[in-house]
Design a protein around this nucleic acid. Structure first.
Lengths: 204, 204
DNA sequence: GTCTATATCAGGATAGAC
DNA sequence: GTCTATCCTGATATAGAC
């Protein structure tokens, strides 16, 4: 692997491959992208690529991890910070994500696809997605619990159930949006979140 | 194709194949099931099967259609009747479906997978799923509109948006349930539906 | 660290005999 | 209506040279 005639350090090659892989998974989906395709985009052959990652599955996992890492560093409110936001900021962040996702069809498709595929216990990304959802629900549950403590929830709203519902709404809205791009994901989510609160969120 | 030495009429073979196909799609998913697998279960070879259905995609479509047909005939409140139910029966039916789905992991997985896969315009089941969601949303919207006319909706609930949210909740809850079978799909959906109404639904 | 070459396998689909 | 035989394509993965 060379760029401008200089050999890349091993790590640099790895990152180049990971970025290319994520791009192509996003563009074409995980299954529809072959290791050969990714290698070609990196100007490598596929055995060359497989020196760095033992299998396509390992490549997927590394690419997902890398995306999370990148997101933490340069996201407006990266996922690392996400579970440290205050309650209403967590909810605003969810609505904002829905808004931003509307310009990232490929990525939404990839995650929607993988969420379902990975529900099979032997899928390479199974643990990743189980943990992802566990963490997400925990954060949102805590946000609602905090709002509850402050008396900001409507009567009868149970934090844990509200969190499950909000996460479900996000996923389900994505499916409808994928099938019909006119669907207003962020709008419907905002209406829903607000229906759980005594006072609507500001600035969403 | 013979059973007890008697040749099946063409239609009988078709149905045998369709039932086997749906079973296997449910057990293993659409992509993971090969035409050869299905043919083997029917004690045929795959070219034999492909005499009846020109391609695997055509087989999928026919199997989905057949499932809808069967559902209409012997379902407790089949989908044909579904759009003729009265408003609260529509909502009860949705919650009931969620309850029943908890014993049909394979089928839930198949539809969840296909909903996402089929969002690609060139997928063989694209039109089927677009139409399916359109019809579902229309029915649920009408149900909420009827309830609204009767003054049964909580203040601020907009029928069209409520329908989108309820459908989204169903899909999203399925994903969470696939990843974590302890998720109470029907419970969370019922709570949500009731949060839209002045008086909770009876018997759910 | 990367390549060439290859092994191995499975998929969908078709041609043509019976 | 169903079979045998085959084609073509594309997948992951490995061995071994450089």
């Amino acid at each position: 692997m060379t760029i401008d005639g200089r050999a890349l350090r091993g790590d640099a090659t790895r990152e180049l491959v990971l970025d290319a892989a994520l791009e192509m998974f996003v563009e074409q989906g995980y299954r529809a992208t072959s290791v050969r395709d990714i290698a070609a985009r990196c100007a490598m052959t596929h055995p060359g690529l497989l020196y760095h990652f033992p299998s396509k599955a390992a490549l997927l996992m590394a690419a997902l991890q890398r995306r999370d890492d990148v997101d933490c560093v340069d996201g407006e409110s990266g996922d690392l910070a996400f579970n440290q936001l205050d309650a209403s900021a967590v909810l605003r962040h969810l609505v904002n994500s829905a808004k931003n996702n509307a310009s990232k069809r490929g990525l939404v498709e990839l995650f929607a696809n993988l969420s379902v595929e990975a529900s099979a216990p032997d899928h390479p990304a199974h643990d990743y997605f189980v943990e992802r959802y566990t963490a997400l629900k925990a954060t949102v549950t805590r946000a609602f619990a905090d709002l509850d403590r402050d008396g900001a929830l409507r009567q009868g709203v149970v934090p844990r159930i509200a969190a499950i519902q909000v996460v479900a709404a996000m996923d389900g809205l994505q499916i409808q949006w994928l099938l019909d791009p006119d669907t207003d994901m962020a709008g419907a989510l905002a209406v829903y979140v607000n229906s759980l609160l005594k006072e609507p969120l500001e600035r969403i």
